[in-house]
Structure formats: C-alpha cells, structure tokens
Design a protein around this nucleic acid. Sequence first.
DNA 1: AACCAGGTTCTTC
DNA 2: GAAGAACCTGGT
Length: 279
Amino acid sequence: MVNVYSTKVKNFVSKLTFDCGQCFRFEKRDNYIDGVALGKYIRITQNDDSISIEGIDENEYENVWKYYLDLDEDYETINDDILNHFGKYNDTISKAIDVANGIRILRQDHWEALCSFIISQNNNSPRIKKIVNALCETLGETIEYSGNTYYSFPSPQVVYEAGIDKLNELRMGFRSKYVFDAAKKIVEGTIDLKLIESMEFDEAEKYLMQIFGVGKKVADCTLLYGYHKTEAFPVDVWIKRVIEKYYPCGIDLNDLGKYAGIAQQYLFFYERYTQKDGM
DNA sequence: AACCAGGTTCTTC
DNA sequence: GAAGAACCTGGT
C-alpha cells in the first residue's frame, strides 16, 4: 500500500527542475523522476500541469514537499522581477526564460548542498553524481521502498567519523580533504549550519568560506540551493561564458535583484542545455 | 596521449 | 591583488 498525492501545478516542470544541474540525487526514468531527498525516497510523475508524488500523503505534501519543490512561490512574479533586472541589457533573459521556465529552485538540505557543491568543483556532472551516490551508498542509512533499497545522505558526523581515507576510497580526489574539513568544522561547532539561515547574504558567504576548499562559487551555490537565498548569483565557467557572449559590456552584479540566483539558473540552463541535443 | 571538467589554494610577481 | 600552476580522477 503506497500513498500517492496528486496536485495541479503552474510554472513547474519536474524534468527540468531535477535535471538542470541543481541537484545530484535524482534520475530521469521513462515515465517519472525519482530519488532521495530529506532522508526519504520519492517518485514524481508529471502530466502537463498535474503531478503525482508517490510515497507521501497530503499532509506531508503541505508540510514538506510543497516547500521543498518551491511550489509555494509565485514564479510569475519572480520571472517579472528577473525580466526587470536583466531585460534592460538585451533580450537574452527573455529567451532563457522561454526555454527554462518550469525550473524551480529546490530547497535542499543545508549540508547536502554544501557537501555536493564542494564535490562539484573542477568536476563534471556524471562524475559528481557518481561520487555523491557512492558517498550515500557507503555512509548513508538504508531506505527500503517497494522492494528496493535507497540511501540517505550521510550526516556530517558520519562523514567525519568515516575519515579522510574513506572519502578517498570514494574517488573524491583532492576534494576529500575539503569535504572532511567541512564535516569536521560542523561536528566541532566551528560552523553552525542552522545559524546561516538568519544571516545576511554577505555574512553568510564569508562564514561558509571559512571552510577549507569553499570559495565564493561553492558558498554561493550552497546559499542558493541549500538556503534558498535567491539573491545569490554563483558565477561558474558557464555563467562566465554567458556574460562574455551575451553581455560583453558586463552586468552589474550588485543590481540583479532578489531573484538573481533563479535568473542564473535560467541562463545556465539556456547556455548549457539548448546547444546539446541530449535534452 | 594530452586535455578537459559547474573551483580553490598556493605561489610568485 | 592579479595571473598562473597544481590538484585527483575518469572520460575522450
């Protein structure tokens, strides 16, 4: 007996949301998307404006997953704000929105986002997924669902206790010591992830950068995807290319609005996925 | 076989 | 500070 909760959605496309590079633990199957988030296995099926989530009931949807999927936000308003801030340069952003509308910025777990984006550095998407999944399979807790076994994302405590040698076995390479330092600082209390929720953006960014191996880009991704601080505008190589290509005179990074990070996701997707036929 | 991949640190000027 | 090399590893 499995629970299924169904609801209507606007401005939400599950395939885009889970395959735009913001998360690493979900897979596109033939007719659905599935993966583990917040310690739970979920399976999402979508037909146009209607989604069904297997494994949850209405109560859990209202209290957890609506929020996780960012379905409580009005993306019409958000897109308008983004257009106001980016549209003054040229029409690139409106093209990006045409292609990427339906992506929502997930509200991922603090630690999972931090750890995943540390692993993402100087790395490619398939290998990031491979390492993150290896980390979960090796150190996470088992989650049984419908005869299959899935794994939760391991806590900082468990990662710390596993030690750096164990992380090396997971083929993290030079990122092992970074992940370990993050876990260590959290376990020892030098870093309090909960505290970041109430910090101003600049303070939060600096705070995270105390971690060895966390620079501005990883800090910004953590704040955007793990804290929903949507004013974050992570600049990676793709966004650098976007700026060079479409905004040759540059853009004012201090005036991108409170949804800059969502615009960043649209632009990233636009540049990266529209020229690949794999979408 | 050399080069690259959703960065960061370390060195050097 | 700004530019350049080095960094693990797996895939072309």
